[in-house]
């Protein structure tokens, strides 16, 4: 940066000085090999001086070995999924700024657009390895304060690492254009002290166990639709729209659709496995990796009993689980 300013100042000075030469009689020189060589060589030296530290930094940045903790980060339109590979749990992290603030109907929070429902939680002073990927389009996990930016490329896992020296909250955003809500895909990292982090992990594991209990219970249709409505709004409405009418021709309506009013199993497996055309996944991706059995049961129930669909079916998580098995 210093070099930058020095060269820049010289530049500015020379232009300034030349302006004064107004009225001069033109000197007619137009060739001077020595000077030309000098100003080829000097910039070159400056460049070498710049490249040297840069090279060392690059090599250090690429070294993802000896990590204390590995988190898999999956970008999807338009939220992040954090998967704690060492501890066997994971969750979604989404923008939590209320719509009213975006539409200027309310005063904006301090962390407007940079706040999420559930931040990524990591321990301080540990090397955290990040495995970054995406389930749909390219996103980029960008946390400027940690100097991390890595594209999330569907179908490939790219790794990177970070380490924090202080506890606190760090904020960033998705940096690669990924569709209409690219600007609403924030990243929040909460760095906790080690004991706090350990407590947090224990807590998360407990929650996973509870969720396990939900699977076995038999649900009431009301609870299912209520839960399903939320799941639908969060995951499906982007394409199929809140009113179930979709956006034909790209996204089919679910309202009165053959699948959503036809046999249960076909509907469940559409959602579980997605739709493929000519052997390729369509925009309708498989949801079994992203949604829990309970959520899938809920959303399918919701779809079968909303708008003008009145099948009256209540799909139980166990049915989803068995559909999964049947598919294998």
């Amino acid at each position: 940066v210093v070099i930058f300013i020095v060269v820049f100042a010289t530049m500015f000075y020379s232009i300034y000085a030349h302006r004064k030469s107004k009225g001069h009689v033109a000197a007619q020189f137009h060739e001077n090999t020595t000077v030309e060589i000098i100003w080829t060589v000097i910039p070159f030296i400056i460049l070498v001086l710049m490249a040297w530290p840069a090279t060392r930094t690059v090599l250090a940045m690429k070294d993802t070995s000896a990590a204390d903790l590995t988190v898999k980060i999956t970008g999807s339109q338009w939220k992040w999924n954090y998967d704690y590979l060492n501890d066997g749990f994971g969750y979604f992290s989404e923008l939590s700024t209320p719509y009213a603030q975006i539409e200027n109907r309310e005063k904006k929070n301090e962390h407007y657009l940079l706040e999420v429902d559930r931040p990524l939680v990591v321990p301080v002073n540990k090397k955290i390895r990040l495995l970054i990927t995406s389930s749909d389009v390219i996103h980029a996990w960008y946390l400027p304060s940690a100097g991390v930016q890595q594209d999330a490329i569907p179908g490939f896992v790219r790794d990177d690492w970070m380490k924090f020296e202080k506890t606190g909250t760090y904020r960033g955003q998705c940096a690669k254009i990924c569709g209409k809500e690219h600007g609403y895909m924030p990243i929040v990292v909460e760095v906790k002290s080690e004991p706090e982090y350990a407590a947090w992990v224990a807590d998360q594991k407990k929650k996973v166990a509870v969720a396990g209990g939900e699977v076995d219970k038999t649900w009431d249709i009301k609870d299912l639709t209520a839960r399903g409505e939320k799941v639908y709004a969060a995951n499906c409405a982007a394409c199929h729209q809140a009113n179930g009418k979709g956006l034909p021709p790209a996204f089919p309506p679910l309202d009165s659709s053959k699948v959503a009013t036809g046999p249960k199993l076909a509907h469940i497996s559409t959602v579980l496995n997605g739709v493929t055309r000519d052997g390729k996944p369509t925009a309708m991706v498989a949801w079994k990796g992203t949604l829990s059995d309970v959520d899938i049961a809920a959303v399918v129930t919701y779809e079968r009993n909303s708008w003008s669909n009145h099948t009256g079916d209540a799909i139980q998580p166990s049915e989803v689980a068995s559909a999964k098995v049947a598919a294998k």
């Binding site: 898999k72 495995l131 990927t133 179908g155 490939f156 896992v157 790219r158 790794d159």
Partner: peptide, 11 residues
């Protein structure tokens, strides 16, 4: 690369 170690997570 798709058959590489990092990608085992996905494929």
């Amino acid at each position: 690369d798709l058959g590489g170690l990092d990608q085992k997570l996905l494929w």
